[in-house]
Amino acid sequence: MNFLMKIWNSSLGKKYIMGISGFLLVFFIVAHMMGNFQVFLGPYWINTYGQFLHDRHEILWPARIVLLTMIVLHIWSAFKLRAENRAARPVGYAGDPASFAASYASRTIMMSGIIIAAFVIFHLLHYALGVRAVNLTGIDFSALRDSAGRPDIYLMLLLGFSKWPVAVFYIIAVGLLCLHLSHGMRAMFQSVGWKWTFGGVSHLPDQIARWFAVVIFIIYTSVPVAVMCGFGKAYREAAVQHLAASAVSGKEVDR
């Protein structure tokens, strides 16, 4: 406990907490991306994967608890560090000049983080909790079932991204996430002291951070972009017709 308090009370320790919590959240981003990408393999794959995760409480709950802890630590250290940094310069310079030679990503890291947090809340309401009011389609996402009777995640993604404001918000948020990561990952490597030259590439971790952000952006945005370009349109329209038909026949009373 004493050891943990020492970390928490030192400036470098808080940066370790910030960096390591961010690093574990990056693991989630990669896993979630790999899950999402299965949409391109068709409904069978992604729905099987969804069912698999849903049934494995022994994986799901520990992962959720760790994620939530990391999010809390990440946000907590961010605000604590921010307050200390503000207090370190009570009187500013004339004309409030922009941080000298600092990248756009580093100057806006707090703002990108806050917008990403807002997006994550929306995203959870939209897909994970299936709140009908936020998905703009009027369809209850949590009630969607595929031919095998499993939750139809494939259809949910197609329907979700068929509404352009949702898709655009998603793309903007992923863009900000990548901006956040391009600086955040570099800072994380720096905070834990990883800054080696490897294979002739100087500052390899910095390069990894930059390219990782670009790759994440391309893969994540490929899903809404594909849906908006007409990916899975036939499947979606057939499902919507089917839903409308079952509503008329009175199976779905909650309307």
Binding site: R89, A101, A102, S103, Q190, S191, G193, K195
Partner: peptide, 30 residues
């Protein structure tokens, strides 16, 4: 204040001290 790895210090330092030393200190401290 705390380091947010903006690189302003490295850019302005009249002796061009590198940010790499901050990484070294972070490592030594851990």
């Amino acid at each position: 204040g705390n380091c947010t790895v903006t690189g302003s210090c490295e850019a302005v330092c009249p002796k061009e001290i590198s940010l790499d030393f901050i990484a070294k200190m972070n490592r030594d401290y851990a």
